[in-house]
């Protein structure tokens, strides 16, 4: 009998517990309302995961983790077309572009983020295919499920809270008019900083997330902490047509051609005069 069922009856936490205790090897297919995940296990450890049939290439993961610039990632991807992630990793490490640790950290983080998303699914179906492991040429990294389960449950609770606190991602943010006093003592993470640099009343939170390649969980968490710190305020609702600079097709190369047009804001002369007048009188 294959393991098969509905998430309503047998949840992700229970499934992972079972796989862990029975030290199973194989692939778990989960079909939820928000997507389809494939999680691969070897002897009860999570080794690989992907979502909706999309397997992000290594350069992309490294870019997301801040280890490569978008330019570097593009160049590398163009160079290694057809090569397996494992070969690409070897190449990059040998060329001293990155360190082995960076690779395994990025891969692990990507995998975990994906699995934690699946934790939020409470409706859908699953089936487990024993000894099916579609991981040839992939970079796998074994992670003990005990930790995944603990962290996943913790995030689930946090997620529920965040969902309550910040239900709507189609609102925009601006810097606080009167930031609370100890602002200068704030330390920002790379991710927070990325979000900060896009804060503008014409960018919705969702757009900022898309532009930075962040999941809903990540962006909610960051925005929530920025709100808590009194650094930003919510503005609603933004102009419908507004998009963050370059967001339209940033991931494709087509956007590159007119990147400079996008990056250079269309500003009227009268606006510059306003700035000049105001700064003169400061």
């Amino acid at each position: 009998m294959a393991l098969k069922g509905r998430l309503q009856d047998f949840g992700i936490t229970q499934l992972l517990n079972l796989i862990n205790l029975a030290r199973k090897t194989g692939t778990l297919y989960v079909e939820g309302q928000k997507g389809e995940a494939q999680l691969c296990f070897r002897e009860g450890k999570l080794i690989y995961a992907f979502m909706d049939g999309v397997e992000d290439s290594l350069p992309l993961l490294l870019q997301r983790a801040g280890k490569l610039t978008s330019e570097q990632a593009q160049t590398i991807m163009a160079h290694v077309r057809g090569k397996s992630d494992r070969d690409v990793a070897l190449m990059l490490i040998q060329a001293k572009h990155i360190q082995q640790q960076d690779v395994s950290d990025s891969v692990r983080q990507h995998m975990l983020n994906l699995v934690y998303r699946v934790f939020g699914w409470n409706e859908g179906s699953f089936h487990f295919e024993p000894s099916e492991l579609p991981v040839q040429g992939k970079l796998t990294t074994p992670v003990a499920l005990e930790n995944v389960i603990m962290e996943g449950s913790r995030r689930l609770k946090e997620w529920e809270r965040l969902q309550d606190e910040l239900p709507d991602l189609d609102i925009a943010l601006k810097f606080a008019d009167r930031p609370t006093t100890p602002l200068r003592d704030i330390n920002l993470s790379v991710e927070e900083w990325r979000v900060i640099s896009f804060i503008n009343p014409s960018n919705t939170i969702r757009q900022v997330a898309q532009y930075n390649n962040m999941t809903e969980f990540q962006i909610r968490k960051i925005v929530y902490s920025l709100l808590q710190a009194g650094l930003v305020q919510i503005v609603r609702p933004p102009r419908p047509a507004a998009t963050p600079p370059g967001s339209a097709g940033e991931k494709g190369q087509a956007a590159q051609a007119d990147a400079s047009a996008v990056r250079r804001p269309a500003v009227k002369r009268s606006l510059v005069h306003k700035l000049i007048d105001r700064i003169r009188e400061l």
């Binding site: 810097f175 009167r178 930031p179 006093t181 602002l183 200068r184 003592d185 704030i186 330390n187 920002l188 993470s189 790379v190 991710e191 900083w193 650094l231 700064i279 400061l282």
Partner: peptide, 26 residues
């Protein structure tokens, strides 16, 4: 020139546990 206190992330949080700058602080 700023009308608000500059948010400078170089300054550290004073509570000792948080004083160690995390590797990703910018």
């Amino acid at each position: 020139i700023s009308e608000i206190d500059v948010v400078s992330t170089e300054r550290k949080i004073s509570r000792s546990a948080e004083r160690i700058k995390s590797a990703t602080t910018v």
